[in-house]
Write a protein that binds this DNA or RNA. Structure first.
Length: 532
RNA sequence: AACAGCGUAGCAUAACGGUUAAUGCACCAGCCUCAUAAGCUGGCAGAUAUGGGUUCAAUUCCCAUCGCUGUUACCA
């Protein structure tokens, strides 16, 4: 494998969301994070691929559709539409939307199943246990009352079932998995999640069932059409199907040729085990390389409380974006929450964070500087370049160090850190203006000194906007536009050119006599609406 | 219940066992005026959950208590 090619590609996945209901804030959170990361990869000129999508099979989906009185596929299509709408509102630039009901997927699932089957890692066995018809699940003894009533459905007695299921030989892969965890300490992140998995695996892995009888919304088991493939041998393979080029013959060879292995599976902590244990084992069984990393982020709370439909305190992502804009929502979730830990959404804090960083610090900085340029320099960009500034110039120093800091932060998924590093430049710029006091210099007729200050500040704003563009692409566009650039951070092809990164990621790119545009506040301060 | 992790100023975070526990936001005061009353300077505030122990020295290590969170397999 060509090494430079390997280093130059980056594939991230979000989970393939279950289409039981419209997207919730948790799905939006994961997807925003994934988009920020992929945008940064793209900015660096890497071949970057963001995969998202939906998992659409299973009895629950079938039942939900029936309750709504629509055909199952129709229900899926509607929910998918709501996902697509939200991703558009949030400026998510996904490259592939993988649906498990899409045509090519069945061929991939079938081939993968066959491959594992041929290696003898799938076998037929009896699944025995107490089954709650209402839950449609086998229950452990502790999930039932002493006389075998379901705890969730106290008036339903569980039935004893003894049915055939196909099983995947997960137990066989325990030693190999443990070696993988040992050899790749970063495979599961953050560390707390890794420990969870290690602990779990150490207790001994049991084979898990991968088929169901009496389920028709799904793919039949290739070797036994009475059975339907259940969840993991279907949904997880959606990541593979996503790698096919549109119109390409759907087979594993084609799917895996260009992008495999996936660099990062970004997931919520609820599905950690399936990605960190089941999935690598399945890939080992199929003799395929495993993904580079699985990152399980935390959950969101609202005002310190767990969110839930039954609790009636959910946070509707659509309403939130409509109220505050995509950039605001993206910024809050990226900057105000430590990825990997549980985070809280609180509207008061939301407004404080956005006002402090985007309106007062960065936004106002741009506005005041352009204002001075207009007043003191007739709006003409200073005839200066980076070479006119000594190496120890306060803003130049920070600007030059920023590249290294920010790149490292983004690559380690320390988005909060990245924001803080970038904002530090805006902070320093505000100080720098006050130290220089251009308004005094103007009265003294020191034109050159004014221009010297303003160029350095404008250039620092530009650099900040560039590095923030994966997070707040629209505001970055706005800033760039006011600074006289026509770069569009939402234009994938344009911003992914390595030459642009080489230039724009460095301090000192503002050109002499840049064609500056009219100053206009980029982000108005938000107010907490009454009634909250 | 068992096992694991966490508990630092109003909020969010930081501190290889070692100076008066750091930073941002919020708040208060002063200064400035180019600007979205924004900016700058200064200030406020913590017995680092509680109680013990180890150590010359503990936010950091050990034990207990309280509180919160996670895991305990087929949950999307």
């Amino acid at each position: 494998m060509n090494n430079s090619l390997l280093n130059n590609k980056f594939v991230v996945t979000t989970p393939l969301y279950y289409v039981n209901d419209v997207p919730h804030i948790g799905s939006a959170y994961t997807t925003m994070i994934a988009d920020v990361l992929i945008r940064f990869q793209r900015l660096q000129g890497k071949s970057a691929l963001l995969i998202t999508g939906t998992d659409e099979h299973g009895q629950k989906i079938q039942r939900t559709a029936a309750e709504k009185g629509v055909a199952t596929q129709e229900h899926c299509d509607r929910v998918v539409k709501s996902f697509e709408t939200l991703w558009e509102k949030l400026d998510i630039q996904y490259d592939r939307f993988s649906r498990t009901t899409a045509q090519p997927h069945s061929a991939i699932v079938k081939e993968f199943f066959q491959r594992v089957w041929d290696r003898g890692d799938i076998y037929l066995d009896q699944q025995q246990g107490w089954y709650c018809v209402s839950c449609e699940e086998f229950k452990e003894a502790r999930e039932l009352t002493d006389d075998k009533y379901c705890l969730i459905h106290p008036n339903k007695k569980a039935e004893w079932r003894d049915e055939e299921n196909y099983f995947f030989r997960l137990s066989k892969y325990q030693p190999q998995l443990e070696k993988i965890y040992q050899d790749n300490p970063d495979f599961i992140q953050p560390v707390s999640r890794r420990n969870e998995v290690l602990n779990f695996v150490k207790q001994g892995l049991k084979d898990f069932s991968i088929s169901r009888l009496h389920l028709d919304w799904g793919f039949p088991v290739p070797t036994d059409p009475n059975h339907t493939i259940y969840v993991w041998f279907d949904a997880l393979l959606g990541y593979v199907t996503a790698l096919l080029e549109p119109g390409q013959e759907p087979n594993l060879e084609n799917a895996l040729a260009q992008w495999w292995p996936i660099n990062l599976h970004l997931i919520g902590k609820d599905i950690l085990r399936f990605h960190a244990v089941y999935w690598p084992a399945m890939l080992l069984a199929a003799e395929l390389p495993i993904p580079g990393k699985v990152f399980g982020h935390g959950f969101l709370t609202k005002d310190g409380h767990k969110m839930g439909k039954s609790l009636g305190n959910t946070l509707d992502p659509v309403a939130l974006v409509d109220k505050y804009s995509s950039d605001a929502v993206r910024y809050y979730f990226v900057k105000a929450i430590e990825l990997g830990k549980d985070g809280d959404f609180n509207e008061h804090r939301f407004i404080e964070v956005l006002n402090a960083d985007l309106a007062k610090n960065l936004g106002n900085l741009l506005n005041r500087t352009l204002g001075m340029l207009k007043k003191y320099c007739q709006g003409n960009g200073p005839q200066l370049t980076a070479a006119d500034y000594p190496e120890d110039h306060p803003l130049k120093v920070i600007g030059k160090n920023l590249f290294h800091k920010v790149t490292k932060a983004y690559e380690n998924l320390k988005f909060k850190q990245a924001c803080e590093d970038i904002l530090a430049l805006a902070d320093a710029s505000n100080k720098y203006i006050d130290d220089g006091a251009p308004w005094s210099l103007f009265k003294q007729g020191k034109q050159a000194e004014i221009e010297f200050i303003l160029y350095a500040v404008l250039e620092s704003i530009r650099l900040s906007a560039y590095f923030l563009s994966p997070i707040i692409p629209n505001l970055s566009n706005d800033i760039y536009h006011q600074l006289g650039f026509d770069l569009d951070f939402n234009n994938k092809n344009q911003i992914s050119q390595p030459a642009i990164f080489a230039e724009h990621s460095q301090w000192g790119q503002l050109r002499a006599n840049q064609n500056l545009n009219k100053a206009r506040p980029i982000f108005s301060q938000l107010e907490l609406s009454s009634g909250n």
